[in-house]
Simulated assay, not measured.
Amino acid sequence: MNLTQVDWVSQFEADENAVILDVRTEDEFNEGFIASAINIDIHRGQDFVTEIEALDKNKNYYVYCRSGMRSAKACEIMNQLGFENAYNLIGGITEWDGEVIEP
């Protein structure tokens, strides 16, 4: 499901079962990420699928990438793998106006 930043954030903040998932490359992730995000690179093919399958399907996933394209694809994959709640951040981190953690 695609959510605007306002909806994504308000839903995430009210969700005690939430996980933020960054599907960009490790290099992109290391340039800055949304607080508490875990990084699983969608470009890693089968390794991406394997790592996603290891996640708790009972949690709700708030997914983002640079612009919203890769994360939309990641949400589709997650839905196919049996994750009921995967929420794509429209516009990705490029349009994010919240805090960005720089490692």
Rank of each mutant, 00 (worst) to 15 (best):
M1E: 11
T4K: 12
T4E: 14
Q5M: 13
Q5V: 12
V6A: 11
V6Q: 15
D7F: 02
D7N: 08
S10H: 04
S10C: 00
S10E: 11
Q11A: 06
E13F: 04
I20S: 03
L21A: 06
D22R: 00
T25H: 04
E26I: 06
D27Y: 07
D27E: 15
E28L: 07
E28N: 12
F29V: 05
N30H: 05
E31H: 00
E31I: 11
E31V: 09
E31K: 06
G32D: 10
F33N: 08
I34R: 01
A35W: 10
A35L: 15
I40W: 03
D41C: 09
D41R: 01
D41Y: 03
R44V: 00
D47N: 07
V49S: 11
V49P: 14
T50W: 00
E51I: 00
I52T: 01
E53C: 09
A54V: 03
L55N: 01
D56F: 07
N58D: 14
N58R: 02
N58H: 07
N58A: 09
N60A: 13
Y62N: 02
V63K: 00
Y64V: 04
C65F: 08
R66H: 13
R66V: 14
S67C: 11
G68S: 10
G68N: 14
M69F: 04
R70Q: 12
E76A: 05
I77V: 15
Q80S: 13
L81V: 01
L81N: 05
E84Y: 06
N85D: 07
A86D: 12
Y87F: 15
L89I: 06
I90N: 03
G92S: 14
G92W: 10
I93L: 10
I93S: 08
I93V: 15
E95T: 13
E95D: 15
E95S: 15
E99F: 13
E99T: 15
V100C: 08
I101W: 02
E102G: 01
E102Y: 08
